[in-house]
Design a protein around this nucleic acid. Sequence first.
DNA 1: TGCTGTATGATGGTATACCAACATACAGAC
DNA 2: GTCTGTATGTTGGTATACCATCATACAGCA
Lengths: 227, 227
Amino acid sequence: MDQTHDADLRIAHSPTKLRELAVDRLRQAIISGRFAGGSRLVERTLCDQLGVSRSVVREAIRYLEAEGLVETQGRSGPVVATLDWPRARQIYDIRRLLEAAAAAACATRADEGTKKRLRAALDALKLSFENGQPDRLLGATTHFYQVIFDAAGHDIAWEIVQRLNGRISRLRAITLATSDRSVSGHAHMQRICAAICAHDPEAAAAAVNDHLRDAAEIARISLEGQP
Amino acid sequence: MDQTHDADLRIAHSPTKLRELAVDRLRQAIISGRFAGGSRLVERTLCDQLGVSRSVVREAIRYLEAEGLVETQGRSGPVVATLDWPRARQIYDIRRLLEAAAAAACATRADEGTKKRLRAALDALKLSFENGQPDRLLGATTHFYQVIFDAAGHDIAWEIVQRLNGRISRLRAITLATSDRSVSGHAHMQRICAAICAHDPEAAAAAVNDHLRDAAEIARISLEGQP
DNA sequence: TGCTGTATGATGGTATACCAACATACAGAC
DNA sequence: GTCTGTATGTTGGTATACCATCATACAGCA
């Protein structure tokens, strides 16, 4: 029996569970700002909104708690996590370390396929800058960095970065779209792409560092309300 | 009414929930190897073992899934996560980035209190090396690094490192206790402590890098079975 | 009016019920 | 012995029940 043909028939993905749908829906609602930072997530209300039982809601909340998007204060129920500048700064710092390392690794090992995907992601990113929809901008940026992390083989770091990005999602939308920057977000990513395609890990890491430092400064102004 | 006295009466911590106890107990059982990598975690069996209902067990499993200690494969129930060398290497690499950054920040800002705590942690560590119990060794090492992260103000990085350490806990016990190292684990930490107390961030980061590189190599040999 | 006590409703924590799906054992036929 | 069909048991996913605790409203009293 030819093993190749067996593989074709394999059912690789199980049906999506209600729980998974609920987690995704809730995560999106938090990230999009529909549930603002500090707001209560009342289980029975969420049951009505999501159309599922409390079991599903509770399990979803446990996931999101572990991701840091939801906090459970001692004696009252779950609350959407809030974000102050000191914590945001930590998140930007960690991202800088992990993203710079991934860009450097990607620059070392990028093949033609990777470069092609990266340039395509950069084109899509340029379109979404022109388009002006923040969600598409976020999605395009995420995809750009995902290409880098995939090529670098940094799966676990990507998980961590995705989680951290979830926690600062509101900020990210603002910082990406901000036009009063000395160097645009798109220009930063062009530099990252160029350094990777030139197989220059140090330039790639430096470009990521610059990008994240800029973004962090805009975030700081946004959160602290003063330049 | 004196506000100071009000603060004394405040009930700061809510009673521990069954759910929290179950998470801790399960986490410890996984970390200690009682539930080996790859083994099934059957909900009803865990209910009997923990003496709680399925709700509590399920919610605990959701947390541990989000932490990466438990994996849920498509069509069968939760399994204790396994660890191969490529993933372990990623974890060591990420730890190196985060721990080196924390040590450098700690070296920059360490006050006398911090230095004192660090030296005390190092003394306790030396005792546990002599003592020979792996769990105490792990605990002492964790405490040493916690002092560093606290002083550095890197709370979020510490959360991430703790989680990553949970995933490689078996490996950590082995690498810490290994005696056929060119530089002992304790000696590495002495160097880290000395660099921090000398306010030398670069030396602190370099010492952490050396420590983690050594540990990663021992882990690789342990997982791949060849020097 | 302010304070206290009581009733009611809302909410989270936990236990249990129900069902579908899957795994395994067993009987019967060839 | 091998294969098929059926029965039974196990397990996960989801819904619901129960209870304790807390918050709020309201009534009564000084």
